Amino acid sequence: MPKIYGPIVDEQTRCTHYHTEKDIIAIKFKCCHKYYPCFKCHEESENHDIIRWKAKEFDTKAIICGVCKTELTIHEYLKTTHCPNCQSSFNEGCQYHHHLYFEVT
């Protein structure tokens, strides 16, 4: 499994910013190709702006389920509310931050 960066609270990728039962994903940031649990972790750890994934890149594996460590493409992640491998639920509130990671309309 790729390394997860930032202030991680547990082995399922929860961080100091988001740590509910459903906060179990990490996102590969296009700008540095590092996995972070959230944009706040990235901001605290990196010295550059976030570059969003373009729609034509949504077949890129850029999401990790913190429970089973399955990597999902951006398309797969955006089309579901749970991990297709282990069925763990993802935080529905993350959709409010999609515009920070992905060029979505």
Rank of each mutant, 00 (worst) to 15 (best):
H42M: 02
Y5P: 07
G93L: 14
H75K: 14
H99W: 13
E92M: 12
N47A: 12
V9E: 12
Q95N: 14
M1L: 11
C94V: 12
G6R: 01
I63T: 03
Q12W: 05
E92N: 13
K22F: 08
E92W: 09
V67D: 13
C94Q: 12
G66E: 08
F39P: 06
C32W: 05
K40H: 10
Y101W: 15
E44Q: 12
Q95G: 14
C65I: 03
R52Q: 14
D59M: 02
Y18D: 05
H48A: 10
S89N: 13
K61T: 07
N85T: 13
F29S: 01
K30H: 09
H17L: 08
Y101C: 10
H19R: 06
F39K: 09
K54D: 12
K54N: 14
H48K: 13
P37Q: 02
K61D: 00
Y35L: 01
I27D: 03
Y77L: 02
C65M: 07
T73L: 00
H42N: 07
T70R: 11
C68Y: 06
S88N: 13
P2H: 08
Y96Q: 14
F102E: 06
T70Y: 13
N85H: 15
L78P: 01
K30D: 06
R14T: 06
E76Y: 01
Y18A: 07
C68S: 08
K30R: 15
K34T: 02
V67S: 15
T81N: 15
T70V: 11
E57S: 05
I24S: 03
E76I: 04
H99L: 12
C32D: 04
C15F: 05
P37V: 08
K28A: 08
T20M: 08
K54I: 06
K28N: 12
E92S: 14
N91D: 15
I51V: 15
